[in-house]
Amino acid sequence: MKPASFKYILARTLDDALAAKTEHGDEARFLAGGQSLVPTMNFRLAQPAILIDINPIAALSGVRDGASIRIGALTRYRMLEADPLIAARQPILREALPHIAHPQIRNRGTLGGNLAHADPASEMPAIMLALGARMRLQSAANDRWVDANDFFVSAMETALRPDEMLTEIDIPDSPPGTGTCFMEVARRQGDFAQAGVAAIVTLGADGKCGGVRLAFCGVAERPFHADAAAQSLIGGDGSDDSFRQAAELAMAALNPPGSTHASAGYQRHLAGVLARRALTTAHARATTEVRRDH
């Protein structure tokens, strides 16, 4: 299991990296953490002609505070796990991170690399979808922002053009009175999820559900947001029945692909169970938030 030959380009600045990508297009791939790319190269499932190593570009790394949280694409999971801003403002990210492989992988793996890889079983794309994050896509000629919902196209397919790099992720703050929850079922800790769900519940001043997001990983060709299920809860008081009905709606909207370890039916079933549980927990956390604010 040795990778095929490739040409290695070391990019020390973003401009260098984007120039190289403009020149080589689809022939070239960016090497960030490499924790998804290198295994596929070792299996020779991927044989890129050129790798552009962006690891030296310090400007691409880090968590920046503002009206929203901005995360450089090269920020490693390890840094996100340790970041107080993430823990305080986006606890759902913090809750999901330990599900991503193991510490050795999280020491190298980057958020941007993961999102650009767009594995539908991966946790982060679903969370970005739930959080309404935006992706900054830059090329030598262009600089644009794309919503998570438009970024993830299909399995291993994103809105990135051949000359573009995902450079930054913008995560808007949740309104007060928000509770979140991430849950997944994997065969072993650290494995890709057979089904995973990110639930976000925001309570209005009246204590009713004012906003609900419900995104799944592992159960579709791309991270999936259950619109009807989330909508069904708006204005409700977060009863067990309402969450059960929302879970039913989510299951009805899903058409899971099945995998070697889980039939489509089991995946759909898991999605329903997890949706109900995650919504319940998110709602309870939101309620605690509201009490704390008062």
Partner: peptide
């Protein structure tokens, strides 16, 4: 395993454990 699962090749890279089978020497 050479695909980053078994952990036998774990080293420290700049002080942090990493899978040496998932990096290139040139890095």
């Amino acid at each position: 395993c050479e695909h980053g699962v078994c952990g036998a090749c774990t080293i420290w890279f700049d002080g942090f454990p990493a899978r040496s089978c998932l990096m290139f020497a040139v890095q």
